[in-house]
């Protein structure tokens, strides 16, 4: 639409404000990235603000010398892969099953599922229950509770309901059983919505912090998010440790590549955020689609 040019000032003001806020959203990431690849001594003095100086990548090799970081990376990857797979599978199946009008107690079980979005017992009762189920210090605690996810089930159900009924009917007349119908018809046509669910589920798994905090004391099961939180407080002792290791092996580390509190903290931060930064621009449209469909009531 076009209106009179009387609102020029407002125009300029909106552009400026949006540009400013966009900058605020992206600059912290940029700031940390340029600091991890700059000379560590300059970076520690807080002098890297606009562009990197004396670029090197030693930090990214060094942080993996911290005991536990590599293991935590694996744990985070495992829970993300396995958790996403199970959540997407279950959401697809349940979303489809809840469209089956002749299922016994369909309305009740659907409500039973959806209600959990609005109500929970609270974090401590949940913790106490998980303990009685022996799900503390247990990898399964990362994936089992996430399998049945009401929001994703709503997304799939809404999608399946929007597809032509004739497809399912035709397959049924051809003698396809329920599972054949699901695997041969429903899964292929639901691909777009399942991609959305997958991306949401993966981000949730990768970002999850609270379950480790509550349920895990065994450092072999620590996730990357949890380790980053711990490192925030221990960065200075960790940097000393890495420096000692380096002093033994390679030639004398120069000041530029010697680990500092800042370099350790920032490099780990980038490792934890990297998957999101890489995946997000590619899949942004899936995220957007998710919230649009979710907005339509289930």
């Amino acid at each position: 639409m076009t209106f009179g040019t009387t609102d020029k000032t407002i125009s300029v003001l909106t552009y400026t404000l949006f540009a400013l806020f966009a900058l605020m959203c992206v600059y912290p990431f940029y700031y940390i990235i340029i600091n991890t690849i700059s000379a560590n001594d300059i970076s520690a003095r807080g002098e890297i603000i606009f562009y990197p100086r004396h670029i090197h990548f030693q930090n990214y090799l060094d942080v993996f010398k911290i005991p536990g970081l590599w293991n935590a990376t694996l744990i985070s990857l495992e829970r993300t892969l396995l958790g996403t797979l199970l959540t997407v599978g279950a959401s697809a199946f349940l979303g489809f099953m809840f469209t089956q009008e002749d299922m016994w107690g369909r309305r009740f079980w659907y409500r039973f599922t959806i209600l959990t979005m609005f109500f929970n017992a609270g974090i401590i009762p949940w913790y106490l229950t998980m303990r009685t189920l022996h799900l503390t210090n247990n990898f399964l605690a990362y994936v089992l509770p996430a399998i049945v996810a009401p929001f994703f089930i709503i997304l799939v159900k809404t999608f399946v309901e929007s597809t032509p009924k004739e497809l399912q009917q035709a397959a049924s007349i051809d003698g396809a059983g329920l599972l054949t119908l699901f695997f041969r018809i429903i899964l292929p046509i639901s691909k777009p919505i399942l991609a959305t669910v997958a991306i949401f589920a993966a981000v949730d798994q990768w970002n999850s912090f609270q379950d480790t905090l509550l349920l895990v004391t065994d450092s072999k099961l620590f996730s990357l998010q949890f380790i980053l939180y711990n490192y925030m407080n221990q960065a200075s002792s960790l940097s000393t440790m890495v420096n000692l290791q380096n002093a033994g092996s390679t030639a004398m580390a120069s000041l530029a590549t010697k680990q500092t509190t800042t370099s350790i903290r920032m490099t780990v931060t980038i490792i934890v955020v990297a998957p999101i930064l890489l995946v997000y621009p590619i899949f942004q449209r899936f995220f957007v689609k998710g919230i649009m469909i979710g907005a339509v009531k289930g």
Binding site: A22, C25, V26, P28, Q225, L228, T269, V272, V273
Partner: peptide
């Protein structure tokens, strides 16, 4: 603007804190 401003929603609070700290 839309792409950039939605990005922070997808990082964890631990990461937000780490950015805040930096």
């Amino acid at each position: 603007v839309q792409t950039v401003t939605t990005l922070p929603n997808f990082i964890s609070w631990v990461l937000v804190y780490s950015l805040a700290f930096s």
